[in-house]
Amino acid sequence: MTDATFSPARRQSALGKTALRWGLYIILALFAVYYLLPLFVMVTTSLKSLEEIRTGDLVALPREITFDAWRTAWSEACTGIQCEGVRPYFWNSVLIAVPGVVISTLLGAVNGYVIAQWRFKGANIIFALMLFGCFIPFQVVLLPMARLLGMMGIAGTIPGLIFVHVIYGIGFTTLFFRNYYVTIPQELVKAAKVDGATFLRIFWSIFLPLSLPIIVVSIIWQFTQIWNDFLFGVSFSQAGTQPVTVALNNIVNSTTGVKEYNVDMAAAIIAALPTLLVYVVAGKYFIRGLTAGSVKG
């Protein structure tokens, strides 16, 4: 913009552009603040003492930072009659989410591979039925699932909850992997067949190594679903196998007397941290994986 022959009209339009840009940034910043405000309140409240919460301002920064509420939430807060904090339930959630994510992702990968690359008779119908499974509301399956878990003898156990989440997740993970593998030319399978590779060998040596972006998508999706699930967790668990979401509810709703907002906030943040972490670590692959199919297609 150091052109000597710069005309006033063009300078004016350049000025307009800059103003527009700044306006845009300001609006975006406002939205960001608005969106981040609840998190801000949660974090600050969790760092305040109960005394300060009662007397102070909701959006004010803590006068004195204390981690007592976090300690309480983690290992002392009462969930009904037990007072061990969210810690045991947090580990329950880990025990449910990790196998649930791994199994449903692996099954989805195999399903997607078969449906996309080994087109058998009725493959499309089976895929359509699996897609249909994605749209069945949780509530509809509660009673039949309870009956099934009872018959299988895993009602109220962690393997039971893993089973439920795997079943519910397969529709989604199959969809992800199928759409990803459909963009891979079928000649790859043909070449490997001529080379002498078997069904599983082709999957293991050729397709899985190609799948990192879509595996990340599947992991984020499934982890978020399973970790944040409340309905299955509250319906199919019993004392000792409840996930962290259920414990959080119990801490917040079943305490009597003075409401310990700082503990509630700390517990809520603890319950939300793992999903946040997964997004931060794997987020860039998430976007890449979601768009990979559409770009190549």
Binding site: P185, E187, K190, A191, V194, I206
Partner: peptide, 13 residues
């Protein structure tokens, strides 16, 4: 037999 394909079908990874 051995086969050469139109898209080459090389294993990308």
């Amino acid at each position: 037999i051995a086969m050469v394909f139109q898209s080459y079908a090389l294993y990308p990874t």
